[in-house]
Design a binder for these strands. Structure first.
Lengths: 218, 218
DNA sequence: GAATTAATTGAACGTTCGTTTTATTAATTC
DNA sequence: GAATTAATAAAACGAACGTTCAATTAATTC
């Protein structure tokens, strides 16, 4: 046999991508063999090399596509929010919702960095820090506006990223909480972490008017 | 050649364990070959099988030993703290300090769960949940005592674990912050997350005396 | 409908994998 | 110092690895 009836390059490419994400997310890039991937797709191993030059490019493509989609989706979402507090809440909602909806993508992006070649790693790391930087910008903005009380911005940014990304470790769709319930819980936790002041307090003055004696709100 | 002069089973075993931890932490269990490990130790690949029946047992042994050491160390530390708030702070300090001191162990424990056989995974997962349960117990205790204000205990427990464990991703010993400075920052963040009340407030009444109208502190 | 292009198979490449077997030497015991 | 045990080396096992190549057939173009 050779070309099969009804064969279609685009369909096969999509099938390869989908199967690869499933497999890499479940057993890991190193553990996934090309024969395993081919079987999942329903083709011979050699067919893969019409679509990717090698295994590494497949991983890189999956991760780059994911990061660019993530960044694009957040940029779109970011435009809607009004005010720091709402923008901060929007970020957390977005982050958790996106992570829950594209679990495999996110899991791969978090776990397979070490399987990337040096060049590819540099590119992905850059995209990551762009994304995390957009959260940091919100924290900066919140401090400027006098809405947040943060001791160490970089550290707090990382804490929030770690906390919210961690949802993917335990969240199951059939759990007691829906994705948006989880998200709202994390919005509350996030607001605590950044020391968000009561809305009235901000409205009354912002950073130029001290809120009273320098006592933390907890 | 066969047995080498000065050869010692205990030393070789320790060398294997140390090299394995280094390698697995850096490149991953699947990516580490037995020949690579042997070379790192300075023996032939076959020598390994005097100490472990196979590669999987090595990974399991590394992870089980780590979890048991972690649990033991926390039990010892847990006895010292007085009061919920201090016990909570002690947990965070301990967790971060331990993670920073045994980076490879912790990294392996977090990354290589999927490389464990089903039986071994069940054992490690049990040890993990015992450890995480000890944090949950502190949150329970804090709520009981009226010292904490927590909406969802299970979720908050996981948030704290994720947040503090995440330190390992970015912490470098030569960074601007020392391990204990980082730990103190996270203690503050942790206290915010659990809605820890001001010490005077607790002293004045505990949970039986309402702190005022039911308004969150932020 | 012939020529061309797209998609895939089947077989094989050399390499590396985890592991086993056997032989050999060092250290310890008696 | 002979017998025993401990610790290794050396070589090989079959299986699996990522990848390449040539042949073949389906779909498309002209």
């Amino acid at each position: 046999m050779a070309r099969t009836t009804g064969s279609d390059g685009e369909k096969t490419r999509n099938a390869i991508d989908a199967a690869a994400k499933r497999l890499i997310a479940r057993i890991g890039y190193e553990a996934m063999s090309m024969r395993q991937l081919a079987e999942e797709v329903g083709v011979q191993p050699a067919a893969f090399y019409r679509y990717y030059p090698n295994k590494q490019e497949l991983l890189f493509s999956v991760m780059r596509d994911h990061m660019e989609r993530l960044l694009g989706a957040w940029q779109q979402e970011n435009g809607k929010a009004q005010g720091v507090r709402e923008r901060f809440a929007a970020f957390i909602r977005f982050h958790i919702q996106y992570h829950v909806e594209r679990r495999d993508d996110v899991h791969i992006a978090n776990m397979e960095l070490r399987s990337l070649s040096a060049d590819n790693l540099a590119i992905i790391v850059k995209l990551r820090s762009t994304y995390e930087g957009s959260l940091r910008d919100i924290l900066d903005e919140g401090i400027e506006a006098g809405a947040f009380d943060i001791a160490d911005i970089a550290l707090t940014t990382r804490a929030i990223i770690a906390m919210t990304t961690g949802v993917n470790v335990w969240f199951r769709a059939d759990d007691r909480l829906t994705a948006s319930e989880v998200a709202e819980n994390y919005v509350e936790l996030g607001l605590r972490l950044v020391g968000a002041k009561k809305i009235e307090t901000i409205a009354k003055g912002g950073r130029d008017v001290p809120v009273g004696p320098k006592i933390r709100s907890f």
